[in-house]
Design a protein around this nucleic acid. Structure first.
Lengths: 233, 233
DNA sequence: CAGCCTTTTCACAACCCTATCACAAAAGCA
DNA sequence: TGCTTTTGTGATAGGGTTGTGAAAAGGCTG
């Protein structure tokens, strides 16, 4: 399994990241301070480093700089608070590969991790470009790469949230997600909204893709829990 | 598949180039130093060499010179920082076929690669006349090779950015590109401008090719994401 | 079958995103 | 160099999306 180094002082976030890194094939090593992170980063080998910029006891960027100075090319994904957007430039100049502003959605985190890691691999190890990951269920076609959803070849206009919900659910047919989980995954790990919001979005999504709203074909309700994508298609 | 040699010390750029060379049919061999590059360039056969001028441990141009001295005619595409424009003359005199200043847009990189490689092939291997790869959508005709766009046979004058945007979008109808992606592809891999800039260009482009600005025919908006070319034409 | 809890549906205000215009800076050209 | 075109960005108006309340409908439990 791939090794990831998380350098972040907020333990809740560390565990959250660790869990979702595991989903996509990473085992996480944890560092809660700059010195810890620096030490681990220089002495062990990782396929990914996740680095919080705002760390007590030192500027997070120093780690990035130092690691690059040592000739280590491990992809680095930087986490930064919203107000520090200026650091984007700085981060990329220091050798970071991508950055994410808090609070971010877990799905976006996973997507960015996959992207930077993919870039770090040699070209011949790349999965083929184009329509990778297209999914079809009866007359519903989902093409995440093109950001297109169509029914019987006819494109359906989905809002960002609707699209993300559909892709997430359709990626794991039969698995039920409760509303809190969906909020974490799509809205962000510390989103302060009501779970009820998810209902409204599912409702709007269904109205766009379901032939019959009374008896949904694709997005089913797991009563008392949340929603799932129909696994019998 | 064609073989390309990339000689460049920044690994991020190397991988970026490798990925996009693959798009246009090249398999990349990587060299991170002058000596590596020199050795590979002299001992293996490539259909393309991409060479960074600013390499640690030696003048990049030496590689070019040496290779040409050995009678190797592989097309060489030179990468150079903006301030070193003087080197253009020098590079071309040393036997380079084209050059590109950093940061460059991925699309431009691909276009230049295609151009130098095409020039290096014998005349009978050339694709036929100018209209190769022309695209027509209703009354809109796009001829990338001739850098010409026309509506009902009437030529439309597009600025460089407008033209590139149109060709890129029209090359993948139905696929949505977000603004950041367009900036990367057309403006350059580390362009630091605002995504909002894309809006302005799309707006100007539309005003030149769309019959009705209120309901665009060709360039559609993917709300919350970016733009796409109409796939139903 | 009644009561309670969950989900669905609808409406709407606040918010965010896009379209558009204007203008200054930058780049290209003569 | 001076002129023209292109380009980047701010400001603003308009439109779509989103979050939430409230009521209706549906399912579970005793």
């Amino acid at each position: 399994m791939n090794q990831a180094l998380i350098i972040e002082d907020d333990r809740n976030i560390v565990e959250l990241l660790a869990i979702h890194l595991k989903d996509i094939g990473f085992e996480a090593t944890r560092a809660y301070t700059v010195s810890e992170g620096m030490h681990l980063g220089l002495t062990q080998t990782f396929q990914l480093i996740v680095l919080d910029l705002m760390l007590p006891g030192g500027e997070g960027l120093e780690i990035c700089k130092k690691i690059r100075a040592e000739g280590i090319t491990t992809p680095v994904l930087i986490l930064t608070a919203k107000s520090e957007e200026i650091d984007k430039v700085l981060g990329l100049e220091m050798g970071a590969d991508d950055y994410l502003t808090k609070p971010f959605g877990i799905r976006e985190f996973q997507a960015r991790v996959k992207a930077v890691v993919r870039r770090s691999l040699p070209a011949h190890a790349q999965p083929h470009g184009g329509a990778v990951g297209a999914m079809q269920f009866e007359s519903l076609m989902i093409e995440p790469d093109m950001r297109r959803v169509s029914i019987r070849g006819q494109r359906v206009e989905l809002s960002p949230k609707e699209f993300e919900l559909l892709v997430l659910l359709a990626s794991h047919p039969g698995r039920s997600y409760d509303r809190e989980e969906l909020l974490k995954l799509i809205w962000g790990y510390d989103y302060e909204g009501m779970a009820h919001t998810v209902n409204a979005h599912i409702n709007r999504l269904r109205s766009k893709i379901e032939p019959d709203m009374q008896t949904p074909t694709y997005i089913l309700t797991t009563w008392g829990i949340g929603y799932r994508f129909n696994e019998n298609l």
